[in-house]
Design a protein around this nucleic acid. Structure first.
Length: 327
DNA sequence: TATCCGTGGAG
DNA sequence: TCTCCAAGGAT
């Protein structure tokens, strides 16, 4: 962490604190560590959350830490609507980490269905195994222990610790990053990769009180998902529109190069997806020729299959036959 | 740090 | 149609 870039709340020409004379800025602001001031966002957002939070199964008390953890894996880069049915089936089949760990990883890959990024299924199975072996079958509550599990990075560790155990962590997902970028920094979008400045800012915005902080983690994420959306933000329904630096600045469009749009058609990813789809549906091992039918170009096809094997998503058997991993 | 890794709904 | 993108992680 040798970043030298200091966070600048906004250009000097853009007043943002409650002490300024800007009309409409009535909420409190607190000094930050750089001589500027930060808006206090959590009261309004937490109140908004009380009225507008979606009733999602992993938010119910009965979900428990395992339910929260499963949902976080599934929600990585995947919309809520598509996760819901798979989540319900998953928890019904594997209500505890040990239940999943007792089955071959291939069953996790199969149950993952078409959620995408099937390596997540493999990692979730690996995490369940580690939890069973190292943590007595209980999802660990400490951030560092969560972080050491496969498939759990900075975001997911903070999310599980906060949502499942009520701890105080800066939970920086794409929604929260966007909310902060707009409301505080005054720009339309956050940087491509999470920066040290963003982490600092997220920590500075975290309420002192633990319960309030945990609620803020969920409420700020929900605000980004429902109101402060990437494309057409509903600023008219935003509880902190009066404090939003981006709105105050006239919603200036994103500067700099557009995010490189990821192509999909014709890529290895598409080929991998087709190959795995065949294997997911198959009850018995699949002969090579059935896999060959999903893609015309032999070099790319072979490369994709090799990749799946080396990733542990596919198990090659003798005689050119393949199946989901039985280990 | 840039790139890779799936999928499908919305505008 | 086509582009964007949805609660990231690993390398």
């Amino acid at each position: 962490m040798t970043a030298t870039t200091e966070f600048t709340p906004q250009p000097p020409s853009e007043p943002m604190s409650a002490t300024s004379t800007a009309a409409g800025t009535t909420a409190a602001a607190v000094p930050d560590q750089h001589g500027g001031e930060l808006p206090v966002l959590h009261p309004a957002v937490n109140l908004w959350f009380t009225a507008h939070a979606r009733d999602l199964p992993w938010r119910r008390p009965e979900a428990g830490p395992w339910g929260v953890m499963v949902s976080e894996f599934m929600l990585q880069q995947t919309p809520v609507a598509r996760v819901l049915p798979v989540y319900e089936q998953w928890l019904a089949r594997w209500p505890r980490p040990a239940d999943l760990a007792a089955e071959p990883s291939g069953e996790a890959v199969r149950a993952w269905g078409r959620l995408g990024y099937p390596r997540r299924a493999l990692r979730l199975h690996g995490a369940a195994t580690a939890i069973t072996e190292r943590h007595g079958g209980d999802v660990p509550s400490e951030h560092a222990q969560l972080l050491s599990l496969p498939g759990i990075g900075e975001y997911t560790a903070a999310a599980v610790a906060s949502f499942a155990y009520g701890q105080r962590h800066a939970v920086l997902d794409t929604n929260v990053r966007r909310v902060i970028a707009r409301a505080v920094t005054g720009v339309e979008y956050p940087p491509n990769a999470t920066t040290a400045a963003e982490r600092r800012l997220a920590r500075a915005l975290l309420p002192e009180d633990t319960e309030t902080a945990a609620r803020w983690a969920a409420s700020s994420m929900e605000l980004g998902a429902l109101v402060c959306t990437a494309k057409n933000p509903a600023c008219g329904r935003c509880p902190i529109s009066a404090q939003c630096a981006w709105l105050r600045a006239g919603k200036p469009p994103h500067e700099g190069p557009a995010r490189r749009t990821q192509t999909y058609a014709g890529t290895d990813r598409q080929v991998r997806g087709r190959l795995l789809a065949v294997l997911r549906e198959a009850v018995t091992p699949v002969p090579q020729r059935e896999l060959d039918a999903v893609w015309h170009e032999p070099v790319q096809r072979a490369r994709a299959l090799d990749g799946l094997v080396s990733d542990g998503l596919v198990e090659p058997l003798a005689g050119g036959v393949y199946r989901l991993p039985q280990s």
